[in-house]
Amino acid sequence: MPALAGGGAERVWAVLASAFARAGHQVIFAVDFDRPENRSFLDSRVRLVTLHTNHALAVLKLAALIRRERPDATLSGIGAANLKHSLAALLAGRARRALISYHGFFPSEPQRLSRWGNQLTPLLTRITGRAVAVSDGLRNALVSHHGAEPRRTQRIHNPVDPLGAPEDLSREALAAREPLVLFVGRLVVDKDLPTLIAAFARVTHPGARLDIVGDGPLRPELEAQVAAAGLAGRVSFRGYIADPAAAYRAARCLVLTSRFESFGNAVAEALAHGLPVVTTAAAGPAEIIEQGRYGTIVPIGDADGVARALNAALADPGDPAPRQAKARQFSVDNAARAYLELIEQMIAENPR
């Protein structure tokens, strides 16, 4: 990964690396530069190595690390890291032991190096050992639209840390919470927070409030939109929170209004906490809640639809138990086991 910054993919890999370490594997976590946001999710048994902020030097240092350590497998996530990892593995003569992973639809990664890495998907998925997509919707897009090698491209859902979710939450206890709507995510274009704010202005449930947990470049614009809509007393910007467990435990429902979402960690985390989910019809969240079985799906950009769904969820948040049972599908152990099985396949196909 480029760094342990405050993104979903970064947390996913910190959690996975820690799970591998707990299972008794020696794990090295290589980053281009140091960031603290998700470092707390990294187990102390994982060895953290900083490469270099210069992309070329980072590739060379990673290749040297691979040659020196000769790991059984190397793994990476997101476009830029996948590209640099593939180059380093080639230089080290270990490309067939490399696993690359995709965590977002390509419009969500506009940075130049990520664009190059994503554009080279047909090549990278053929020279490396395996490629992973975090949802069926993303895998389908990779294979059907971006030329990924279908036999080597597999889906493994993101692991989701339940973050201390209550195991005995009753329907009555959830309904007794204050009418707090929760959003968790980066404040970026893909999340379409202007639609969320417009929708919340139309929510009529008595006393309803909205907590926005996360940070990003659009925060000043969104704060201005909230003020212009007269919502300053009802909408709070909480900033990035490394462990949002308390936010989930306080909320009555979760909302996500994304235009592009390959998975949606917050959706799975909300289910783990028993919360009803209101989401737009982005591929990942719709897949998680099984096309509406475990939440409510509204069309992308439909502020009125979001408002109606939030009013309904606040009025009757329903039974937490089926949602929490569904969330167990995305356990850290399940994801780690799936990755380790792929690694075993790569080792069997490409012995030293």
Rank of each mutant, 00 (worst) to 15 (best):
E287N: 13
P276R: 12
V277S: 15
A251V: 04
A247F: 15
I288D: 10
A227S: 10
I241K: 11
L271W: 11
A246T: 13
T279N: 07
A242Q: 11
R249H: 10
S236L: 14
H205P: 02
D211W: 15
A303N: 08
S258T: 13
A245S: 14
L275W: 03
A303H: 09
D302V: 01
D243W: 11
A286G: 12
G233C: 04
A242W: 00
H273C: 02
G292H: 14
I289A: 09
R209G: 00
R238H: 10
L210R: 08
A208T: 04
D211G: 10
A251Q: 05
N265Q: 06
T257C: 14
L218K: 14
T257S: 15
V278W: 04
D304F: 09
T296N: 12
D211H: 13
A307Y: 01
P299E: 12
R234N: 13
A307G: 01
A281C: 12
F260K: 10
A283G: 10
F260D: 15
R249E: 12
Y240A: 00
P299K: 05
V306L: 09
S262Y: 15
P285G: 04
G295N: 08
D215G: 08
N265I: 06
G284K: 09
I241A: 11
A227Q: 10
I289W: 10
A224F: 00
E221L: 12
R259K: 12
P217L: 08
V278C: 01
Y248Q: 10
A270D: 04
I288T: 04
A281G: 09
L254W: 07
I300G: 09
A245C: 04
A228F: 08
G230W: 05
A227D: 13
L231G: 06
G214S: 01
L275V: 04
F263D: 04
A286D: 08
